[in-house]
Design a protein around this nucleic acid. Structure first.
Lengths: 236, 236
DNA sequence: CACCTTAGAATGTATAGACATATGGCGCAA
DNA sequence: TTGCGCCATATGTCTATACATTCTAAGGTG
């Protein structure tokens, strides 16, 4: 694969940074120098540097120059898999059981629920995910009927609500909180495990431009599940 | 904040996609149409579309057109904070205590360690992170001396090795595995918590282009710490 | 010496045009 | 009808230029 010129400039600088030849806070050659080095126009150099800036590898300061950014271990890509897909990929048979389906108002005094409901009702959906028949995770989900009226008529017996939402509802923002908690009595009963077992708790909220769509708490059996996040500097 | 023209084109299309107006696999207007719409040159349109392609929101096919990418619900940005910074941000006093510092060979039969060592020795660094004097996390780290000879001379009494590495060693790839485990006897003793307490286990390995640099296991007190991952349409 | 002004340097944005290259459909020929 | 080749289409890359914006440093002034 022959790289285009701006790609070559970009990868040259990228490897200089990643190999340590260019250290954080170092100043890069200015655009005119790179024009000389590569015998090309400024737009070509600019495209390479802009791409590096967009990727966070360098910082560009108008009037001042371009500088190597501080290493940014601070963000990685977290795969948040659709459970049926993930379980199947590991070679197990996925199962889902809907435990509770209830239309109700937000709990009074519960600010979270009231924000989600937006004055209207909520659909509460509790379910159990399993792999090869063994419990894997308990899920407690609330969906805003104001935001997703169509879900009232959806068939959620076989398909988990997360999968249904993923396919039917576009969203713009989401936040996931990951922690470890001991299983309380009910979680323990559903997961068929002793009370106090370490569970991976994944709490996720989803918005469509400031309108709240859904909030979910998933309790994973700690020993049976894990999340993976990656960081790779080069794009695939 | 007034957006430049190419930014406006980009955000316009971005919101059309995220709001669902443009569905996955839909074809975008071709560059010449966008030139008409925005009364600008092709380079400007191209810059906007290239940025969207780099972000994975659209796919561009030479000769065919530009198309909305498949939904990317499966990946979010995970913040993997530098602990001292994160603890300080929450308004606590951060502390670090080095418990074990040992130069040793890879454990025979332990494939992980042998890969990391690359035939040379490893530096084992165990430590305890605390917030306001209370234990927060136990860390067990191995560093490849083949990859990072300089760390043999580093002062790691006060500064955690993760922070030192972040500042001194560039890396290209990292993988983080997140799970929940019960505290074993030693972890429990160090964290001053009962055996079996739910802990958030973060395991991370780091490479510099296929050369392994370091592997670390961090056991966080489940109730005292959590990770946050975000997905947002707009970049910060 | 401290402060202000100013010129130059460096990046940000945009234009108009040129040629390259992959794609897909249409028409022609076997 | 089928298969092949050609061409219009659309993106990929690059050039040369222009002007705007912001930062830095030099130099002059009180």
């Amino acid at each position: 694969m022959t790289l285009s010129l701006h790609e070559r400039i970009r990868t040259d600088i990228e490897s200089a940074i990643l190999s340590g030849k260019l250290a954080p806070e170092d100043r890069l050659p200015v655009e005119h120098e790179l024009m000389q080095t590569y015998q090309c126009s400024r737009m070509t150099v600019n495209k390479a540097l802009s791409a590096l800036a967009a990727a966070g590898l360098i910082e560009r300061r108008k009037g001042a120059g371009s500088f190597v950014g501080r290493p940014h271990a601070h963000s990685m890509i977290l795969d948040v898999p659709d459970l049926p897909v993930e379980v199947a990929k590991r070679g197990h048979v996925y199962g889902y059981q809907l435990l509770v389906r209830r239309l109700r108002a937000a709990a009074r005094g519960n600010a979270e629920e009231e924000l989600l409901a937006g004055g209207r009702r909520l659909l509460q959906l509790d379910g159990l995910h399993s792999a090869d028949g063994a419990p894997l995770a308990v899920e407690r989900r609330l969906v805003s009927l104001a935001a997703v009226p169509a879900i009232a008529d959806a068939d959620l017996e076989k398909e988990p609500p997360g999968t249904w939402l993923l396919r039917h509802v576009p969203w713009t923002e989401a936040e996931t909180r990951i922690s470890a908690v001991p299983a309380d009595a009910e979680i323990a009963r559903l997961l068929k495990t002793p009370v106090g077992t370490a569970c991976l708790l994944v709490e996720r909220q989803t918005w469509r431009s400031s309108e709240r769509i859904t909030a979910v708490r998933q309790y994973f059996l700690g020993t049976a599940y894990h999340l993976v996040a990656r960081f790779g500097s080069s794009r695939p």
